[in-house]
Design a protein around this nucleic acid. Structure first.
Length: 494
DNA sequence: CTACCCCCTG
DNA sequence: CAGGGGGTAG
């Protein structure tokens, strides 16, 4: 069926282009307008970023509308001398007219048959009693639970959207069936999404697998297990390219490098994993507009609500609706930290090891700060330091083992192993020129470790504190370029 | 309490 | 890198 639609679509565009090639620079424009057409009943999206063209094209409703518009236009432009840019220009307006008519007729017929089939299938799928394949936990119901809020959810148009969204890729798929929301599911899930009281914990009973061992800590982690499962569930594999999925911070530069990770780089799940990295902020910050962004599939509805602890409530419960940034337009206020932010932070580490939270706010002005974001950034630098100091200690000990006696023999140059390790970690792409000052600091740190170890201070459990105290005073000013949200481009294009 | 720090773990 | 525990300063 998808193929059929595609063929129709192609045919359609042939006609469309031949008659209207002057009208629009590219098809995407029209897609956009169509897009808004069909979505107006649907607060935002039931599907994040349905700007995807493929999707819109496959939406039967839109397609029909567009076809009708075309046919109307077909009749109107007959006299337009410019129209024949792509076809035999010898054909007069008359033949054009008849041919257009023919095409229109053919088109109508094909559309009708196609639509009938679509409707049949939809009805079949929607009316068939649904065998419960998965245990409730794995039901990615968040998406539909939210739809339940929308009184217009049952309009044909939206059913078709859901259909196109999830089911079309494989209507016979057993998994597809569970995508069909039963009204009871919605009613049940809805309050979980809306209310934020801790008393909701009782409502999380339907979830058989408990994730309640969170000790009531302001843990920000809404049960990663179920989150991952929900997302990885085959029924939930989204047909869209990832950047269009409402995750504006998909890493365009590759998987952010963990110092110890590497195995998940090229794996099929790597994208999901990378998403999971930053998904928390998304989940939290968008928790209040779940109504529209129902697709946050990693939001396990039930158990998570019990975990909406003070932090989430206080920080993210009253966020204003921000204009989501598109993956393509760069500089808007973002609600989460992107892989690019991570990269930027790493580069900043070359200048400052102990940035204050105020400093971070200055340098990450393109993100909307809340406690979560701040903590995460601070955590990043904490992790950076950890790696840094581990390397320092390692190389200091190694130097000692190598028979180095005096601190004078110790240095950090751009070709030494220590530097390579550090550079690999903070500047993996090696597209940034590490400031000289950093080498100095590194050298000082290395010597500090060396001396401490030689002096046997490492027997003291907290022997490193003294070193930390020294190093934290060696921060230098971060260049102003880093204050620019686009600093990465500017920096790396040098 | 909050905000940070560090440590350890996955 | 993120979680989470433990500790400290204000």
């Amino acid at each position: 069926m998808q193929k059929q639609l595609r063929q129709l679509q192609e045919k359609f565009y042939q006609i469309y282009d031949s008659t209207d090639s002057e009208n629009e620079e590219d098809g995407n424009l029209s897609e956009d307008s169509m897009h808004s057409d069909g979505m107006d009943h649907h607060a935002q999206d039931s599907v994040p970023d349905r700007s995807d063209n493929e999707m819109s094209d496959l939406d039967p409703g839109h397609f029909l509308d567009r076809a009708r518009a075309l046919i109307r236009q077909q009749a109107m432009v007959t006299g337009n001398p410019k129209r024949d840019s792509q076809r035999g220009k010898d054909q007069g307006p008359a033949s054009m007219h008849t041919e257009g008519k023919q095409l229109a007729e053919t088109l109508k017929q094909e559309l009708n048959t196609a639509m009938s089939q679509v409707v049949d299938t939809v009805v079949k799928v929607f009316s068939k009693p649904v065998p419960q394949v998965f245990p409730p936990l794995q039901m990615p119901q968040a998406r539909f639970a939210v739809n339940g809020e929308n009184p217009d959810f049952h309009t044909t148009n939206q059913r078709l959207q859901c259909f196109g969204d999830v089911i079309i890729p494989n209507p016979q798929d057993t998994f597809a069936n569970i995508q069909v929301p039963s009204s009871s599911d919605q009613i049940e899930a809805l309050p979980l999404v809306v209310r934020k009281n801790s008393s909701d914990q009782s409502s999380s009973a339907p979830t058989p697998v408990g994730h309640h061992h969170h000790h009531h800590h302001p843990s920000l982690h809404p049960s990663p297990l179920s989150a991952t499962v929900g997302f990885g569930s085959p029924s939930f594999r989204h047909p869209f390219p990832l950047p269009l999925m409402g995750y504006p911070f998909q890493n365009p530069l590759g998987t952010p490098s963990g110092s110890y990770s590497g195995k998940d780089r090229a794996s099929p799940e790597s994208l999901d994993l990378s998403r999971e990295t930053t998904s928390l902020r998304t989940k939290m910050s968008s928790s209040h507009h779940m109504n529209h962004r129902s697709c946050s599939p990693s939001y396990p509805g039930s158990t998570t609500e019990g975990l909406s602890l003070s932090l989430i409530k206080s920080e993210c419960g009253d966020l204003q609706d921000m204009a989501e940034i598109s993956p393509y337009s760069g500089s808007q206020i973002q609600e989460g930290l992107s892989p690019n932010h991570l990269k930027k932070a790493k580069l900043m580490f070359f200048y400052t090891r102990y940035p204050s939270s105020n400093m971070l706010k200055m340098f990450f002005s393109d993100v909307k700060f809340n406690r979560c974001i701040t903590s995460q950034l601070i955590k990043w630098f904490s992790n950076f330091r950890e790696f840094y100091y581990i390397q320092m200690e390692k190389f200091a000990r190694q130097a000692i083992n190598d028979g180095v006696t005096g601190t004078e023999e110790l240095n950090v140059t751009r070709d030494c192993e220590l530097y390579r390790a550090l550079n690999m970690h903070y500047n993996k792409a090696n597209d940034f020129e590490v400031p000289e000052r950093f080498l100095e600091v590194a050298r000082i740190t290395l010597r500090e470790f060396f001396n401490a170890i030689v002096a046997g201070k490492d027997v003291d459990p907290s022997w490193k504190k003294a070193i930390y105290k020294v190093i934290c005073k060696l921060d230098s000013e971060v260049p102003d370029i880093f204050k620019s949200p686009n600093c990465l481009q500017e920096l790396l294009h040098e």
